[in-house]
Each structure stands twice: as structure tokens, then as C-alpha cells.
Design a protein around this nucleic acid. Structure first.
Length: 111
DNA sequence: CGCGTGACGTATC
DNA sequence: AGATACGCCACGC
């Protein structure tokens, strides 16, 4: 397994349940050059990580996984858009940076 | 090395 | 909103 793939998987594995990240987000956090690489890494080794928490930049899942992925996301309580066809990135977006802050500053604007 | 391909992203029409 | 175009970069042939 390539080191690049390993880093991608490591990042995906740290996305907490109930949140999601875009391919681009993962790419940035993993240090991979482009979002495309994230997709390729998941296609090859995604089986061992919560791959469904990774969606496209606009919150929609990849076409061929649409049904399955949305089901898994909804199942663990990830906020979806009104139409239920995409992740509500206004509330569910995860980022490496926010990971630390959340610990001592629990979300306050959930109303 | 060139070329097609793709779980991507942004800009345009 | 849906379709196209182009940039991007690793991979396989």
C-alpha cells in the first residue's frame, strides 16, 4: 500500500461519526496533491475505513454510491439537506483544525 | 513517454 | 439546474 493511500485512509478514519468531509478537505488534511487522489485511494482501500463520510465539495455523494452512502450517513445522524440528497455542509463539515477546538468549546449555535 | 481514465473541483453557459 | 470544459495528478497500458 502506498504511503499516500495510507495517509488518506488515516484521515478518513478520524472523521467522527455524525460529520463528513469533502474529498478536497481530506486531500488537504492528508497532504495529498489533489482530491482525485483521495478518490483513487478510497476506490482501492476504502473498504477498511468509514468512506461514506467523504463526499464531494457540494455535499453530494458519488453517483454510483449515492443510495448506499446517503443511507449510511442518515443512519448515523449526519445532517442532510432538506431534499435529503446531500450532506448539509453548513453543519456537518469536519476539518482537521476544528478537531481540537471542539473539545473545549462544544458547539453553541445548534438552534 | 503519450494517452485514456476517474469515489474531484471550479468556472461558464 | 443540467451540461460542458478545463485543470488537476496518480495509474495502468
Amino acid at each position: 500500500m502506498d504511503e499516500l493511500d495510507t495517509r488518506v485512509l488515516a484521515v478518513v478514519a478520524r472523521i467522527p461519526a455524525g460529520q463528513a468531509a469533502s474529498y478536497g478537505d481530506v486531500a488537504g488534511a492528508a497532504g495529498t496533491p489533489t482530491a482525485r487522489e483521495v478518490g483513487q485511494a478510497l476506490q482501492r482501500h476504502g473498504r477498511s475505513v468509514p468512506w461514506w463520510r467523504v463526499v464531494r465539495a457540494d455535499g453530494t455523494p458519488a453517483p454510483h454510491l449515492r443510495t448506499e452512502q446517503l443511507r449510511l450517513l442518515a443512519q448515523e445522524g449526519v445532517p442532510l439537506t432538506p431534499d435529503g440528497g446531500a450532506v448539509d455542509f453548513g453543519r456537518a463539515r469536519w476539518s482537521e483544525a476544528r478537531r481540537d477546538r471542539d473539545d473545549g468549546e462544544q458547539q453553541t449555535l445548534f438552534g
